[in-house]
């Protein structure tokens, strides 16, 4: 059985409030907050990028367990904001972590589900006996065009997961993936900000694929929403995950702990995984967790996780940790995001 051995997360210190952005563009802050259900989002510092954040979350994950780093033969880096268009951040990360040199590394991209896709591939490599461990990172310094809705939602953060086959805190019981060619949100090479199809990002995109992937997994496993203690979905804003959970048959109690988007924004490839971080702080032995990440373009990866009694010894504080924050104003936000 392959599963999560340990995990780590990193959220930058800075926050910008929705109302601060709304006031710049003459929008009613309450309207914006109500429509997106986001009060504030994280902002990475001017000298941070997806790699530096990945180093933080990965260091955290590796600090929970005493792993012989030469046994980590898979390092996968999922992001939409890779430091380079061509050059693997996965090897930069591995090198700084002291993982060398007999390992497989590559960077993945599938919008916000780049990391969960990598989780699926990695667990297959572990099962085949290639490696005892795999380090997977989802990390983004999310960009949004100014005066666009993404400006309120695109945030920064990183989550790292160490996969293995022994001493798991959570087993990956099963998974499914659902893919199509759907241009709801994309970014061309050399272009700084992503573009999106507005309302097209809803029903035919986010909802259609999460629905397809989740139902496929329910069918495969014979499980249904009532079997799960928690459900975690990708969070492009505060409304979509609530709506998709409800449409699939989950209760609001099952998803409420995962809704980090309300106060952290959408950290793209780290979004759903960050929701998982919040849930793991609370989950008990034997709990089933349903995780479904959505990536634009489009596709959805869904997982059934079962918490083991090892979570107790490696559980990380989440809610308290993210309270260490500092609010910034709009010009500082532009400076940190290198928009000015």
């Amino acid at each position: 059985m392959v599963g999560i051995v340990s995990y780590g997360f990193y959220v930058p210190k800075y926050r910008i409030k929705t109302e601060v952005i709304a006031n710049v563009w003459g929008k009613n802050p309450e309207d914006v907050k109500k429509s997106l259900l986001i009060a504030e989002k994280t902002v990475a510092g001017i000298d941070e990028d997806s790699l530096t954040m990945a180093f933080e979350s990965a260091s955290s994950a590796l600090s929970s367990v005493d792993v012989d780093r030469s046994k980590i033969k898979i390092v996968l880096f999922g992001s939409e904001t890779h430091p380079y268009a061509v050059n693997p951040a996965s090897t930069i990360l591995a090198e700084f972590l002291g993982i060398e040199k007999n390992y497989l590394a590559y960077d993945t991209e599938f919008a916000c589900k780049a990391a969960t896709g990598a989780l699926i591939s990695a667990q297959g490599l572990i099962k085949s006996g290639y490696s005892d461990f795999a380090l997977i990172t989802g990390s983004d310094k999310g960009m949004g065009k100014t005066h666009d809705v993404l400006e309120y939602t695109a945030a920064s953060g990183s989550v790292s997961i160490l996969l293995g086959k022994d001493d798991l805190i959570s087993e990956i019981l099963d998974f499914e993936s659902f893919s199509s060619d759907t241009p709801d949100f994309w970014r061309r090479e050399g272009i700084r900000y992503p573009s999106h199809g507005g309302r097209f990002t809803g029903k035919p995109s986010y909802f259609y694929h999460i629905d397809g992937s989740s139902k496929s997994l329910f069918k495969k496993t014979g499980l249904s929403p009532k079997d799960f203690a928690f459900a975690v979905f990708h969070m492009p804003n505060g409304k979509f995950p609530i709506q998709v959970a409800s449409s699939l048959g989950f209760s609001s109690a099952q998803i409420k702990d995962s809704l980090v988007v309300n106060y952290l924004g959408n950290s793209y490839t780290a979004s759903a995984l960050m929701g998982l971080m919040a849930v793991l702080e609370k989950a008990k032995t034997g709990d089933l967790i349903f995780l479904c990440a959505y990536g634009s373009g489009a596709g959805a990866d869904s997982f059934v996780l079962r918490v083991t009694r090892n979570l107790e010894k490696r559980r990380k504080e989440f809610v308290k940790a993210i309270k260490d924050k500092k609010y910034i104003n709009y010009p500082t936000y532009l400076k940190y995001m290198e928009i000015i």
Binding site: G45, D47, E48, D49, L51, T52, F55, E56, F96
Partner: peptide, 9 residues
């Protein structure tokens, strides 16, 4: 008291 971290320099 401080701790060393990784950033772009």
């Amino acid at each position: 008291e401080v701790i060393s971290i990784l950033r772009k320099v």
